[in-house]
Computed example of a mutant assay.
Amino acid sequence: MQEIEPLTYGRYYHIYSHGVGNRDLFRETDNYDYFLDLYDKHISPIAETYAWVLMKNHFHLLVRIRNVDECLNLTGFENLSGLKPLHQHFSNLFNAYTKAFNKYYETRGSLFERPFKRKRIHHKAYFKSIVLYIHNNPVHPVK
């Protein structure tokens, strides 16, 4: 079993996931917009986003998890008891989106592969390569 990289305050991560069984995560424009609204609600309070791409059946994010003191300065996080484990914010995003998606399309079951993938970014060169990778992900060469 692959070891899961824990999320840590103040660190940079490449976070990504696919639809279960290559299932589409986004079927229409409104799906993308709704996911981004939920992302703003669940992730923006605990992370800065540097790059992202939402594809039909997967997504990629480049984020820096905020430091604890940055999170504590936000409304509703006046003390450490208000902080959830960092991965829980992402789980809440995926669960909220999945519930709405399944209800709207009258489907059931998991939508995202579990666990969501995350790779810590240790070096500036890797950071740059992930930015390029994310921005070039939707580009397909013409044959």
Score class of each variant (00 low, 15 high):
30 D>T: 12
61 L>F: 15
74 L>E: 15
58 H>I: 01
84 K>M: 13
29 T>M: 03
84 K>V: 02
138 P>D: 04
92 N>W: 05
49 T>R: 08
71 C>H: 06
143 K>H: 14
53 V>N: 06
28 E>L: 13
91 S>V: 13
82 G>Y: 13
64 R>T: 05
68 V>P: 00
86 L>C: 04
67 N>M: 09
105 Y>I: 03
3 E>H: 14
99 K>C: 01
122 H>S: 09
86 L>E: 08
90 F>K: 05
135 H>Y: 14
38 L>R: 14
139 V>E: 11
77 F>R: 12
51 A>P: 09
94 F>G: 05
64 R>I: 08
111 L>F: 11
128 K>I: 05
99 K>G: 00
107 T>Q: 12
57 N>A: 01
74 L>D: 14
49 T>V: 15
81 S>D: 11
50 Y>F: 15
120 R>M: 15
141 P>Q: 05
79 N>V: 04
108 R>A: 08
56 K>Q: 14
72 L>W: 00
119 K>F: 11
23 R>Q: 15
67 N>S: 08
10 G>P: 10
47 A>K: 04
72 L>H: 02
41 K>T: 03
82 G>K: 15
56 K>V: 08
31 N>Y: 09
113 E>Q: 12
125 A>N: 14
97 Y>Q: 02
94 F>S: 07
54 L>H: 12
133 Y>A: 12
